Every structure is written in structure tokens, then in C-alpha cells.
Simulated assay, not measured.
Amino acid sequence: MRKLLLLLLIPIASLILWSSTVSPASAEFLVPCSQSSAFQQRKSQAPDSYYFNKPFEVYGSELVCGEDGLPHLPIRLDRFIDVLIPFGIFLYTAGFIGWSGRSYLQAANKSSNPEEKEIFIDLPMAIQSFIKGLLWPLLFLQELTTGQLTAKDNEIPVSPR
């Protein structure tokens, strides 16, 4: 129970620390790039070629610039889903890969010859591990609540000092 509380306390504490030290991004200083004098100065100093002119035209018509004259992409609440979907896909995929490998190694360790199963992949066992990996969020919650995911305090070796 103590470890579960600690696992929940660490992300909350880091979120509080991060939100207190990082100033929130505000779009008050952002203006359309076509109205920014610093952006217009950068545009006039750029070489006259397609690779410079075309981006400056697009930036000037569609983006907002900061005081430095550089285009910025503010994340607004209506665009939050644009960030959330790729992040969710990445998190699910990374968890799937990690959980599949973890479940294969756990199953291999329970077999009669675990070293051989780590070198020569047992295909039926690997497919079973991939199927378990598809359900990794549910299996994670199950193991976390039952205490299988974390080690007990008496199982952790402490170096005598």
C-alpha cells in the first residue's frame, strides 16, 4: 500500500513542481507574422530564392510571430486533441512492446530451459505474449492493484553500510 501511494505521489508532486516553475505560455505577445516588424525585417534580410521566399509567404499569411520575429505554434484548447491522439498512440504502442517482451521473458523463466528460449524464440509463446500485450493497460492495472507489479520491502536487498 505504501508503494502504491508513493507511485501516485511522485507524478502528482512532479506535476505541481513543473507547473510552479514553468510559466504558462500566453498568446498575448503573439501577432500575425504579416504585422510583425521583426518578421518583416527577417524576411527582407533573407536571400532571394524559392527556398526562402515561399516559406516566408506562408508564414506571413498563416502563422503568428513572437517578439523575436520567429513563427510560433501556440497550442490552444481546440487543438489539444491534435496532441493527445499521437501521444496516446505512442504510449499504447510503447506499452504494448514493453509488456509483450516482459510477459515473454516471464513465461520463458518458468520453462525448463529459459536461456534457450531467450536465444531461440518460442513462436507459440511469443504469439501468446503479443496477445497479452494488446491488453497491457488492463493487465497493468490488475497487477498494480494486486501487488504483483511491485516488489515487497523485504524482497529488496539493502546494502549494509
Rank of each mutant, 00 (worst) to 15 (best):
P47Y: 13
S14H: 01
I16C: 15
Q41G: 08
V58Q: 04
L134R: 07
F29C: 06
G66S: 15
L84N: 07
K43W: 07
P47C: 13
L63K: 02
P55I: 12
L123V: 10
D68H: 14
D82I: 14
L73I: 14
V83F: 10
N109H: 07
F56M: 10
E155H: 01
F39M: 08
V64F: 02
F120A: 00
A107Q: 05
G98K: 11
S49K: 02
D78M: 14
A46F: 12
G133M: 15
I85M: 09
A107T: 01
N109T: 00
T150I: 11
L9N: 01
E67N: 13
I10Q: 00
L9Y: 04
G69V: 04
P24D: 11
G95V: 11
L91G: 09
I121C: 03
I97Y: 00
I12P: 02
N53M: 14
L105K: 08
S100V: 10
L91P: 06
S111H: 01
D153M: 00
L138M: 12
S37A: 05
Q40V: 12
P157F: 15
E118Q: 08
V22I: 07
L4I: 13
P160C: 14
P160L: 15
S23D: 02
L135K: 06
V31Y: 05
L70M: 11
I121M: 00
L123R: 12
P86A: 10
N154Q: 14
D68Y: 10
N113D: 08
R2C: 08
F96Q: 01
A46S: 15
G95E: 12
L73F: 11
F52E: 04
S129Q: 06
G98M: 05
S100R: 09
S129K: 12
L138S: 13
Y50F: 06
Q45W: 09
L4C: 00
I12G: 06
Q142I: 05
E115T: 09
